[in-house]
């Protein structure tokens, strides 16, 4: 087994009075796509931003974040600046939040190239055009001279991905990169990301709330709830045989393929606010399998199959098909 590219252990992130990530561990291996799935408030975006060192000063971070052997938790901003844009890159949800409206797309890409290596303008421009071409923008040479507002939403997102990959990073962290896009555009962009991954050994950490996106593109999945690990493992295994009741509930409540009409199995209640977490397992108040003991301790991830971990006190007592909990 090769060393993972990114190893996160017992990560805790505190913002003001709240602890939003509460002891999270996961790995990302070179070349793979890890989907981090959870609903709003689960801590998935904060985790992504912590790994990239993008959180404001004053954020409390403990635990370990090792990227290619280098410890980043507590490292100074210079350490991040040496990595960001070169070895790890970020793709945000809203392209316009990273694109400048007053420079052409080509200029911005060329600047990204020149910020990490000494190249003259012509060479940097060539690299910029090549990157636009790689993300599937037709007639890249001409489009590089366009401004972001002249691009469609899908093309802007491609341009942001081009900016992320222009320096051939080892890890791209994409936070809901296609959520704001139409479904057909979303599918094309995710397919394009798959191709990029095949061409290079680039790893992708994809933050998403959409299980179907994870199902179609990821190699592994990490399901989070209220800042903690719920379940992780190879995507096919976790989706076909979820062992944590929360994962099972998410899967059970998707509209089925076979029948139409009727009631969907639904999880009762709503996710807790980070400032008002229930004691013990944060999912217990909504969990159909919860017993009194669930409210006493927080469950730790347990290995239940090769590479498959679930955080649930009752993992060994649940029915074989956990989605039946919601029947």
């Amino acid at each position: 087994m090769t060393q993972p590219l990114l190893t996160v252990r017992d990560l805790r992130v505190g913002i003001q009075a709240m602890t939003v990530v509460r002891g999270l561990s996961f790995d990302v291996t070179a070349g793979e796509m890890l989907a981090v799935v959870g609903e709003s408030g689960a801590g998935k975006s904060i985790t992504a931003q912590t790994v990239l060192g993008l959180l404001p000063a004053g954020t409390r971070i403990s635990g370990s974040i090792r990227f290619d052997g280098q410890e980043l938790a507590g490292a100074p901003q210079q350490a991040y600046q040496r990595l960001r844009g070169r070895r790890m890159a970020f793709v945000p949800q809203h392209a316009m939040s990273v694109l400048s409206p007053v420079h052409t797309v080509g200029e911005q890409l060329a600047l990204a190239v020149q910020s990490v290596q000494r190249l003259d303008r012509k060479a940097a421009n060539e690299r910029a055009v090549a990157a636009l071409d790689r993300v599937g923008i037709a007639d890249a040479g001409r489009r590089a001279r366009s401004y972001p507002h002249e691009f469609s939403g899908g093309m802007r997102q491609r341009a942001v991905i081009a900016m992320a990959i222009v320096n051939n990073p080892d890890l791209v962290i994409a936070d809901e990169p296609t959520t704001a896009l139409d479904p057909t555009v979303q599918a094309r962009i995710l397919d394009m990301l798959d191709e990029l991954r095949e061409q290079s050994k680039m790893a992708v950490m994809l933050v998403t709330h959409d299980l179907t996106v994870a199902a179609a593109h990821a190699d592994r999945i990490l399901v989070m709830y209220a800042g903690r690990h719920v379940e992780s493992g190879p995507i096919g295994r976790v989706l076909a045989h979820p062992r944590a009741p929360y994962t099972a509930g998410l899967i059970a409540s998707l509209p089925p393929r076979e029948a139409t009409g009727g009631k969907l199995p639904a999880i009762s209640g709503a996710p807790p606010a980070p400032e008002a977490l229930p004691p013990g397992c944060a999912f217990a108040p909504r969990c159909p399998a919860a017993v009194d003991a669930c409210a006493e301790h927080e469950p730790q991830p347990q290995q239940i199959g090769s590479g498959h971990l679930a955080s649930c006190h009752r993992v060994n007592e649940l029915p074989r098909r956990t989605t039946e909990l919601y029947a």
Binding site: A187, A216, R257, G305, S306
Partner: peptide
């Protein structure tokens, strides 16, 4: 058809087929 094919991953989600025995390796 294009709209439908862009609904990703539905074919990888579980069906009604019974699950195999748990792998406790």
């Amino acid at each position: 058809r294009e709209l439908l094919s862009s609904v990703p991953g539905l074919d990888r989600l579980p069906t009604t087929s019974p699950p195999p025995a748990p792998d406790l390796s």
